[in-house]
C-alpha cells in the first residue's frame, strides 16, 4: 500500500529569535496507523530537530501530548492523520495557555490550581497504621471513580472560553478533582476545599459552555462535576440558612 502525503502546519515560537509565534509547514508521507504525535516525532527525528513538544506514553495515559489539532484540543497520540487526510493539519499549542517554546505551553498556573483544591484524602485525625486501611465498598468507589480518571491533560482548559477570558477561574479539571475527593467516603476535607471551590474564582465562574466534557479523552465529565458541586453548595447554603443549628 502506498503511503499518503499530508501537510502539517506547525506553530513555531523560538523566543530567542522571534517576538511572536510563526507557522512552519512540513510535508510528509505517512502510513495509515500514524497519529499526529508520530508525525511530529518523525519531523523531529528526520527533518528538523529543533521542533519542541511534550509527550511521553503514546497511549493516552500521561496527558502530556495535548495540542490544538485543527483548532480542537486533542491528545496528539490519539489523533489519527488518516482522519484529517487529505486536508492539511494545523498543530498549535493548547489554546489559552502561554507558550514557552513551539508547541510547549506553560502549565504552572494549572499546577497551582490543582494543588489549591487539596487533591488528596484529608482526615480530621489519621488512624494509626496498625489499624489498617480505610475500607470502601465497590458502591462507594463507583460514586467517585469517573472523576478520578483525569490524566491532567488540560484539554478541558483549552476548550473553556471562561478560562480564556478569566484566567483566575480554577477550571474544569481542578473542580472535577475536588468533586472526586469530596465524594470519597474516606475523605473529610470538604470544608477546606469548599473555600476554594465556592469562591468567586470557583464554580460560579462556570457558565456551562459544556465543551470541557466534550473534549475530555477520559470521559471525566468536568461540566457535570461543576454543576453537581453548584447544587451541593447551594443545598448546603440553604440548609445552613434554614437550620443554622444543624451545623456545628
Amino acid at each position: 500500500m502506498s503511503a499518503k502525503k499530508i501537510t502539517m502546519r506547525v506553530t513555531r515560537y523560538r523566543p530567542e529569535q522571534e517576538d511572536a509565534p510563526t507557522e512552519q509547514a512540513y510535508e510528509l508521507e505517512f502510513p495509515d496507523d500514524w497519529v499526529v504525535l508520530d508525525a511530529l516525532n518523525y519531523i523531529k527525528d528526520d527533518v528538523d530537530g529543533t521542533l519542541t513538544f511534550r509527550w511521553s506514553c503514546r497511549m493516552g495515559i500521561c496527558g502530556s501530548c495535548g495540542m490544538m489539532v485543527n483548532g480542537e484540543p486533542k491528545l496528539t497520540c490519539a489523533a489519527f492523520l488518516r482522519d484529517y487526510y487529505p486536508a492539511e493539519i494545523r498543530v498549535e499549542p493548547l489554546q489559552y495557555f502561554p507558550i514557552i517554546r513551539d508547541l510547549v505551553i506553560d502549565m504552572t498556573d494549572f499546577l497551582h490550581k490543582l494543588k489549591a483544591i487539596t487533591p488528596w484524602i484529608v482526615r480530621d485525625e489519621e488512624k494509626p497504621l496498625a489499624e489498617g486501611e480505610y475500607l470502601q465498598t465497590p458502591a462507594q468507589l463507583a460514586d467517585y471513580k469517573q472523576f478520578s480518571m483525569c490524566i491532567n491533560c488540560m484539554l478541558c482548559y483549552s476548550a473553556c472560553p471562561v478560562y480564556g477570558h478569566e484566567p483566575e477561574f480554577i477550571g474544569p479539571a481542578a473542580i472535577a478533582l475536588a468533586h472526586r475527593y469530596n465524594l470519597d467516603s474516606r475523605d473529610e476535607g470538604q470544608e477546606a476545599r469548599q473555600q476554594v471551590i465556592a469562591s468567586s474564582e470557583g464554580i460560579w465562574d462556570c457558565t456551562l459552555v459544556g465543551e470541557c466534557t466534550e473534549v475530555c479523552p477520559k470521559r471525566v465529565d468536568p461540566a457535570m462535576a461543576i454543576q453537581r458541586t453548584k447544587v451541593a453548595t447551594t443545598t448546603e447554603w440553604a440548609k445552613s440558612m434554614l437550620m443554622p443549628w444543624g451545623k456545628q
Binding site: 523566543p15 511572536a20 483548532g71 489554546q95 489559552y96 507558550i99 514557552i100 480564556g164 459552555v209 465543551e211
Partner: peptide
C-alpha cells in the same frame, strides 16, 4: 512566555 490574544470573534469560529 508568549500570551496569545483572543480574537473578539472567537465564538464565531465554532458552531458549539
Amino acid at each position: 512566555t508568549y500570551h496569545r490574544p483572543i480574537p473578539a470573534t472567537w465564538w464565531l469560529r465554532d458552531r458549539k
